[in-house]
Amino acid sequence: MKKILALFVASAFAFSCADDDPLATDQLAGGPKLVGFQESFTSVSYFEDLGTIEHEFPVTLLGLGNGQLSSEDIVITYDAAPESDAVEGYEYDFAEASKQVVIPAGSTFAMIPISVHTGNFDPVVKTTLKLKITAVTTSGVSYAEQNRILDIYFIGCQSTLAGDYNVKTTRKDTGAIYNFPGETVTMTAINTFRTETVGPYRVTDFAAGANAGYTFIDICGVIKVPLQNLGDIYGNEVKGMTEDGTDGAVVSSSYFSVNYQIGFGTPVNSVWRPFTSEYTRI
């Protein structure tokens, strides 16, 4: 039985369903054999010099064509895209000199190892390694263009946004305003936070088991809202307003704002409602 979100509002919304709706990447039996990154970005954060630490980033089979796993190894070549501003040899090095990784026959993923030099992170601004698949040399397998690049943010600036705020949320297409006094913003991971409200919806508007609010990431004063399911269980999605991840800004130690949108409609998330939430520290 699909979960339905009961929101106590005047008009009826067409909510989509979540638990048994497959993700696009679950459709392994259709389309060509493709590899790529399942996420568009990830972050690596260090605030002190811990030396060189190796991190691994997965590259995955996103489609299987005829539904069968590959009977031979899939060889993938990668490199830093020219748009990267992180410096190879200073903030990071590729652990494999060949810049190749292999998804073994019968498997669905491989890990790309990168050596991270933690003592060389900028304490004020992030830098970005745009990890790009450059070739797939196995016959019958290619890369998914929209999943070809993984942005790896190197972050040396620690966010301190956790705390209590008065929140003013504006629906941008109608001008409707929703005020939420005394909202707590909680840090859930390094530079990652969870609010208690999203759009016009507060904790009491969600069904049991849902996670109220939305998740955002503070990357050296620039806020990004990653794609996520509303309440973590519904098919309705929440995401930022921009393609480049500049979805908000930390203006001062007592004020920041975030721009995001919530998907509604039939088919799923065919209508997006834009919101701006302003947070003033109490």
Rank of each mutant, 00 (worst) to 15 (best):
L5G: 06
F8H: 11
V9W: 11
A10E: 14
A12G: 09
A18E: 09
L23I: 12
Q27L: 08
L28A: 03
S45T: 04
E56T: 14
V59T: 05
V59L: 07
L62N: 03
G63Q: 06
Q68H: 08
L69K: 13
S71H: 09
D73H: 06
Y78G: 06
D79P: 01
A80Q: 14
D85A: 08
E88V: 13
E88T: 13
Y92V: 12
S98P: 04
K99R: 15
V102Y: 09
S107G: 08
M111F: 10
M111N: 12
V116G: 10
N120T: 12
D122K: 05
V125T: 15
L129N: 09
L131D: 06
K132Y: 09
T134A: 05
S139I: 14
S139M: 13
S139G: 15
S139N: 15
E145W: 01
R148D: 05
L150F: 02
Y153H: 12
I155H: 07
I155E: 15
T160A: 13
K168I: 15
K168A: 14
T169C: 10
K172Y: 02
D173C: 03
G175W: 02
G182C: 02
E183H: 07
T184R: 08
T188F: 03
T188W: 02
I190V: 15
I190W: 12
T195I: 01
T197E: 09
F206V: 02
A207P: 08
G209T: 05
A210N: 06
N211E: 15
N211A: 13
A212I: 01
A212W: 02
F216G: 00
D218N: 13
C220W: 05
I223M: 06
L230A: 00
L230T: 00
D232M: 01
E237W: 07
K239P: 00
T242S: 10
G245Y: 10
D247G: 02
D247T: 02
D247R: 00
G248H: 05
A249R: 13
S252P: 04
V258M: 10
Y260N: 03
G263C: 00
N269T: 00
W272R: 00
R273E: 15
S277E: 03
